[in-house]
Simulated assay, not measured.
Amino acid sequence: MNATPAERVAEALRDDLAAHGVRLPDVRADLTDPRQPRLELGTIPLGTGFALLRVLTDYQRLLKAERRRRS
């Protein structure tokens, strides 16, 4: 079975953070509404929160740019 875009983002996020020494195994895609998939995060260590926020903001910018490019 092919991974959905939300599942690919969750995997990429997990891999990117792991490359920087941050291990977040509990990142997954919530696909209950296929039109509005969500990323779910488990417990995040306090020191990781700001770095994670920055990475998620970057992903959000990339996603918006990709949507504009496709339009």
Rank of each mutant, 00 (worst) to 15 (best):
M1T: 08
M1A: 08
T4E: 00
T4K: 04
T4P: 00
P5S: 03
A6I: 00
A6Q: 00
A6G: 04
E7S: 05
E7D: 02
E7L: 03
R8Y: 06
R8E: 07
V9N: 02
V9G: 01
V9W: 02
A10P: 01
A10S: 02
E11L: 03
A12T: 15
A12K: 13
A12Q: 13
A12S: 13
L13E: 01
D15S: 12
D15L: 08
D15F: 04
D15Q: 12
D15N: 11
D16Y: 03
D16F: 04
D16L: 09
D16T: 13
A18R: 15
A18G: 09
A18T: 07
A18K: 12
A18S: 11
A19T: 09
A19V: 00
H20E: 10
G21E: 05
G21Q: 07
G21I: 01
G21C: 02
R23Y: 12
R23T: 11
L24G: 03
L24Y: 02
P25G: 00
D26S: 10
D26L: 06
D26Q: 14
V27N: 05
R28W: 15
R28A: 08
R28V: 11
A29F: 01
L31F: 09
L31G: 08
T32Y: 08
T32I: 06
T32L: 10
T32F: 10
T32W: 09
D33H: 04
D33I: 00
D33P: 00
P34G: 02
P34K: 01
P34M: 03
P34T: 01
P34C: 02
R35Y: 07
Q36D: 11
Q36Y: 11
Q36K: 14
P37H: 03
R38W: 08
R38A: 14
R38F: 05
L39Q: 05
E40I: 04
E40M: 10
E40H: 05
E40T: 07
E40R: 07
E40G: 01
L41A: 03
L41G: 06
L41T: 09
L41N: 03
G42Y: 06
G42T: 09
G42A: 06
T43S: 15
T43A: 15
T43Q: 14
I44K: 02
I44C: 01
I44G: 00
P45E: 11
P45G: 10
P45R: 10
L46E: 14
L46T: 15
T48R: 03
G49D: 07
G49E: 08
G49S: 08
G49C: 12
F50G: 06
F50C: 06
A51G: 15
L52E: 04
L53N: 09
L53P: 01
R54D: 11
R54G: 13
R54W: 08
R54K: 15
V55N: 05
L56W: 05
D58E: 12
Y59V: 04
Y59W: 14
Y59C: 09
Q60G: 14
R61L: 15
R61A: 12
L62A: 11
L62C: 10
L63F: 07
L63D: 07
K64H: 13
K64L: 15
K64T: 15
K64I: 14
K64G: 07
A65H: 10
E66G: 10
E66L: 05
E66C: 04
R67K: 09
R67P: 00
R68F: 10
R68G: 03
R69C: 06
R69F: 13
R69N: 11
R70C: 08
R70H: 12
S71Q: 12
S71N: 07
S71C: 00
